[in-house]
Design a protein around this nucleic acid. Structure first.
Length: 438
RNA sequence: GCGGUCAUAGCUCAGUUGGUUAGAGCACCAGAUUGUGGAUCUGGGGGUCGCGGGUUCGAGUCCCGUUGGCCGCCCCA
């Protein structure tokens, strides 16, 4: 046996696996269209600098990057956000607002394999550009929810945690921290769920120990799980920025409630989402059981288009990864059986009958029916077996008798009934079966 | 990058204290079966036991290395 292996972390899609993948893509694409998002695509290979500009030089260690034959430093795309920012930035003045775009694409990261994470994966990405208000967040959170619900997932299977980096900064400012210290504390907040109090150690080492009362306030803020608790804690601090931001929260949650999404969305200020190019609301979808890594994540990133050298343009976006999502669907028994069955299987008596059948086979295929037939001469018994195994609804029988009479025998494989149809009426008969039937 | 664990047919696995030519089920192919159904029976193909080295009269089995999978840590845009 040849000894070529698939590269580590890469995936092959045999027909059954590709059928499952396509099932995800089909519903995601369909859902995005119902929300009025337009699909785009872009290069798999980009200048390395694009990602360094967005995420910093350290990012290179996690990229598939190399120097091409023209001496260019390039990388396989690890995410879509910088690319879509470039696409929009280039034509920002010519695009109708709001700009609502989505894509389904493959990404590459040079990382260690883990459950729900490989070196290549697909993501559904959706972004709205040009809308600074919470209307954009409303639309995207609704799209995220529907993109999961479309598969039969409910509030028992997943939920969306909603947080806000602005609110955190305003809050920490009100507690008397400057911007740098606030960032450090946010890192601690981000890790608190995993590390507990140890999460604050790096901050304390750099800036000195945190006053216990302030840490208590931060932890209380982190623990907020409802709008009313949020209002209570913010009102005690006062401050115009906080009050205005709280109003954004009220309006966003009211929108989501009106859309019937309250059960799916939870206030959770523990979500800050790692590398901080986010500038406002952030949200992540998780499975309810908490067994899997994040299903989806996103948020507002108003500075990124400008940072890449274009005119400032507000933006919100999120992505859903295919691996964790497929795991969840399979766990919940929501991955349908996706066998590709023909509509019609043709049973052929011999070489002369085969030639007669070919004309009809082509005509039926041209009319849009899935038609299959045995490639070799086979006994009738075997052909009917093959017809049954294929999953076809209908068998067409071309035998010596039928040919002599100028008819085709049409057998309903479900009901095990059959009748003879004049050859000229075959297409009409098949059409009647599939439109009138079921 | 670090740690744990595993690797025998396309898949799931068995393989005795190291002992002839490495097995089963499923799947695949063919026949029984040249005019009617997913069954059954019979037969067949498919393995340098992940790869390399070592110990031994003898290694799928023991030892070392390596590659890869899985799980976790770091990271997670």
């Amino acid at each position: 046996m040849a000894s070529f292996q698939t590269l580590p972390g890469f995936r092959e899609f045999y027909p059954d696996a590709l059928a499952r993948r396509n099932h995800l893509f089909r519903l995601w694409r369909q859902t995005a269209h119902t929300f009025g998002f337009a699909e785009y695509d872009a290069p798999v290979l980009e200048p390395l600098e694009l990602y360094k500009t967005k995420s910093g030089d350290e990012i290179e260690g996690q990229l598939f990057s190399f120097t091409d034959k023209g001496g260019r430093e390039v990388a396989l795309r690890p995410e879509m956000t910088p690319t879509v920012c470039r696409l929009v930035g280039e034509r920002a003045n010519a695009l109708k607002r709001p700009i609502k775009w989505f894509s389904i694409a493959e990404f590459y990261r040079y990382e260690r394999m883990q459950k729900g994470r490989g070196r290549c994966f697909f993501q559904f990405n959706a972004d709205i550009f040009g809308e600074p208000g919470i209307e954009a967040e409303t639309e995207l959170i609704a799209l995220l929810a529907q993109n999961l619900c479309a598969f039969g997932l409910t509030e028992q299977d997943f939920y969306i945690r909603l947080s806000d980096r602005n609110l955190w900064f305003f809050f920490l400012e009100a507690l008397g921290f400057d911007d740098a210290r606030s960032r450090s504390l946010l890192t601690a907040v981000d890790r608190f769920e995993k590390l507990g109090d140890d999460a604050f150690k790096p901050d304390a080492e750099q800036y000195g120990a945190l006053e216990p009362s302030k840490q208590a306030q931060i932890l209380a803020f982190l623990g907020i799980r409802s709008l009313s608790a949020l209002e209570a804690q913010v009102s005690s601090l006062g401050g115009d920025k906080l009050r205005a931001r709280l109003d954004d929260w009220r309006r966003l949650l009211r929108n989501l409630e009106a859309m019937g999404l309250s059960r799916l969305v939870e206030v959770d200020l523990g979500v800050v989402r790692g590398l901080a190019y986010y500038t406002g609301f952030v949200f992540e979808a998780f499975d309810r059981k908490g067994e899997l890594r994040a299903l989806a994540g996103g948020g507002r990133y108003d500075n990124l288009v400008g940072k890449l050298g274009y005119a400032e343009l507000p933006a919100v976006g999120f992505a859903i990864g295919d691996m964790t999502f497929a795991l969840l669907l399979e766990q919940r028994g929501l991955m349908p059986n996706l066998v590709q069955a023909p509509d019609v299987y043709v049973v052929i008596g011999g070489p002369a009958e085969r030639l007669a059948a070919f004309g009809d086979i082509q005509a039926l295929r041209a009319a849009g029916y899935r038609v299959d037939y045995p490639m070799k001469e086979l006994a009738f018994g075997k052909q009917f077996k093959a017809a049954a195994e294929s999953g076809a609804k209908l068998a067409l029988i071309y035998g010596t008798d039928e040919l002599a009479k100028g008819v085709v025998k049409v057998r309903d494989l479900g009901e095990r009934s059959e009748r003879e149809v004049p050859a000229a009426q075959l297409l009409a008969e098949v059409r009647a079966f599939f439109t009138g039937g079921a």
